[in-house]
Design a binder for these strands. Structure first.
Lengths: 143, 143
DNA sequence: TAATATAGTAATAAATTATATACCAAATTC
DNA sequence: GAATTTGGTATATAATTTATTACTATATTA
């Protein structure tokens, strides 16, 4: 039990550098704006302001302005929620998606580059192990 | 080649929730203070102000104050670098380490909890796969 | 239907973070 | 040894983020 956990915990520092890269603000976005776009991108689906607010621990009062600025800059759209007329649904625009994908591209290229330090057999091993980890972590999350 | 990368990239969202948890500020620390402690904790070794500044993309002018406040609050120590008398070496105090470990404890408990959703065989698989991934990722980083 | 809870907005002050410029002392280069 | 670079500090200003309180309109509940 604790052996698995140890390995899991260790995994995080191993990916830390790349996460740092995600945090880096892309030119014209503030830290929080970036967090919001990132969160939308990760979730791959429209979210309400409240959902974002709670997940990121940003008070809803702040969200109003943040959302407005992101909208003005063309990163997201905001439309009424048909189910609940009080709330709004936030979605990434193409530009918004692109701004996030850019960061991933850098991570991707970095990884490809480092990969050459492994021989062919190790590469196959890594691929299989990553696949297994992803599969099982996902399974764990599905409560 | 691109198959491995795909799995690698996918790994990051799978760990995202826990990373979010790391970002959450613990009571009396500001966002940047937290980032600095986290970075020191991850690196497991003393760093100069410049190293932190560059890695976190925080201008050195800000560092002076940030470091001072962290020192005043007892999270870090600052001592002259013997090799280069212009620079200083920053280290986590016990309190500083503890403040970071707390967050990991939560991640750990969360993981242990989710683990019950896998059967025994899957747990063994996960452990082995995680071990493999960690081993190979580390090997890749050692240039 | 009246009372209450919820999603979001508005506005303001205080704290944090970002940007720019100038400075000192030790290190490096010529 | 003089000139230049580098690690860090000091200071002022602007932008962002946090915190507080009050408000509107829709949902929910009794």
């Amino acid at each position: 039990m604790s052996e698995i956990s140890k390995e899991y915990i260790e995994l995080i520092p191993n990916l830390f550098k790349n996460f740092q890269r995600l945090n880096q603000k892309s030119s014209c976005l503030t830290h929080l704006q970036n967090q919001i776009l990132e969160f939308l991108f990760m979730n791959q689906q429209p979210l309400t302001i409240k959902q974002i607010s709670e997940a990121l621990n940003v008070p809803k009062q702040q969200m109003t302005d943040l959302i407005k600025r992101l909208m003005d800059q063309g990163y997201i759209t905001k439309s009424q929620n048909r189910v609940d007329k009080r709330s709004f649904v936030i979605e990434l625009t193409e530009q918004g998606k692109f701004s996030q994908q850019e960061k991933w591209t850098k991570i991707y290229q970095n990884f490809i580059n480092d990969l050459t330090k492994l021989n062919h057999e190790e590469q196959l091993d890594l691929r299989y192990a990553l696949h297994k980890v992803n599969y099982l972590l996902k399974k764990m999350e599905e409560s």
